[in-house]
Simulated scan of single mutants.
Amino acid sequence: MDNLQVKYFEQVKLAIPPYQNLAQSIAEVLSITINEAYKKIRGNSQLNLQQIIKLSDHFGVPFIYKPDQLPTVSFDYLSVDQEIPNMLLYLKDLHKNLKQIQKSSKKHITITTDDIPLFHFFKYPELTCFKLFFWSDSAMNTTTKFDPSSFDEEIITISKQLNEIYLEIPCTEIWAKDTVHGTIEQIRYAFEAGYIDKDLALLIIEQVRYCLTDINMYAISSKKTIDPEHTFNWYNCDVLGSISYLVDYNGSLACYNRFNTFNYLKTEDRNYCEQTKNWMQSLIKKSVSFSGQGEKHRNKFIYNAFAECDNLVKEIR
């Protein structure tokens, strides 16, 4: 229990702003002295059930216990209806999580994906709105045409902020060989089904090209901004099993697994995250590097992606 309690307070410390004193915060929530709060943080004084509930509710950090003989993993799940109006809630939650990572003194995100990581296309309004529209049930259950101007301006603002925050977080991205293909097919389907007209389809394709050009520039310099700490490592792997985001910040690990197109399951279970980290490292060993000196393979990948864009442009025209 003592070890669990100490680890719990380590998670609480990560959840509060750096300037906020942990012991003082605990004392205020539990209505105890700061001295008693320090004892509980060190594990010298045990929390009771009511105190655990109070702390979990206040800080939004669950106290997780599992018997050693049961290899279970607990996940957090953001339940968002797949409707465009509720995309704002999804983006706000994403913004909160990414901002917390950005504030950490040490951080890194590793991604395995068969779709362009969403943070990249958040730079481009029409492309952002198109992806959110396509991910929603609207693209399947309505005859309404896609209209970027119908999206709340706050969605565009938060999306751009997410892109800017992501650029300042060191990352490693491992892409499947057909990562760009999915977005191209979504645009083709939307055009053929009548959800987007010719001009809008061509604009969205153009923004996909801009997005890929950005990523190519990041890879050439192995960084996403002029700051050398904002590193970018890009790999291509033919063998990918899932879309996963592994966040390493201040010595803690968190894993986000994508499902149902855009939703995700989050866990900070140490064993699960360590296994995911080892799996990602093994993928990198099987991958081709696109960053820095990987010019030959990177240029081939970008050329093929641009060729797909050009072919769709010809079809549309």
Rank of each mutant, 00 (worst) to 15 (best):
K99W: 13
Q100S: 14
I101K: 04
I101R: 02
K103N: 11
K103I: 00
K107T: 12
K107F: 06
K107H: 15
K107D: 09
H108A: 13
H108F: 10
H108Q: 11
I109C: 06
I109E: 03
I109D: 02
I111K: 10
T112S: 15
D115V: 11
D115Q: 11
D115P: 01
I116H: 00
H120W: 14
K123E: 12
K123C: 07
Y124H: 11
P125K: 06
T128F: 07
F130T: 02
K131H: 00
L132H: 03
L132Q: 04
L132V: 04
F133G: 06
F133T: 08
F134V: 04
S136Q: 10
S138Y: 12
S138R: 15
A139T: 07
M140H: 15
N141S: 11
K145F: 10
F146Y: 00
F146Q: 01
D147G: 05
S150L: 00
D152E: 00
D152T: 01
D152P: 03
E154T: 10
I155E: 07
T157V: 08
T157K: 14
S159N: 03
Q161V: 05
L162H: 08
N163C: 12
E164Q: 13
E164T: 12
Y166S: 14
Y166C: 12
Y166N: 12
E168C: 13
I169Y: 03
P170M: 05
P170Y: 06
T172A: 02
T172Q: 02
E173K: 14
I174Q: 02
I174R: 05
I174F: 02
W175Y: 15
W175S: 09
W175V: 09
D178G: 10
H181A: 12
G182W: 14
I184H: 10
I184R: 06
I184G: 06
E185L: 09
Q186P: 00
I187M: 01
I187T: 00
Y189V: 00
Y189H: 12
Y189F: 13
A190R: 07
F191V: 01
F191L: 00
F191G: 02
A193Q: 14
G194I: 03
G194W: 08
Y195F: 15
I196F: 06
D197R: 04
K198I: 06
K198G: 01
D199N: 13
A201Y: 02
L202T: 04
L202Q: 05
L203K: 15
I205S: 06
I205N: 02
E206A: 12
Q207N: 11
Y210C: 09
C211A: 12
C211G: 10
C211V: 10
L212N: 03
D214S: 12
I215Q: 00
I215W: 06
I215C: 08
N216C: 14
N216W: 08
M217V: 12
A219N: 03
S221M: 11
S221A: 13
S221D: 14
S222I: 08
S222M: 10
K223Y: 04
I226T: 14
I226M: 14
D227M: 00
D227K: 11
P228D: 03
T231S: 13
F232R: 07
N233T: 01
N233Q: 14
W234G: 06
Y235E: 03
N236D: 13
N236G: 15
C237D: 02
D238V: 01
D238L: 05
S242D: 14
S242K: 14
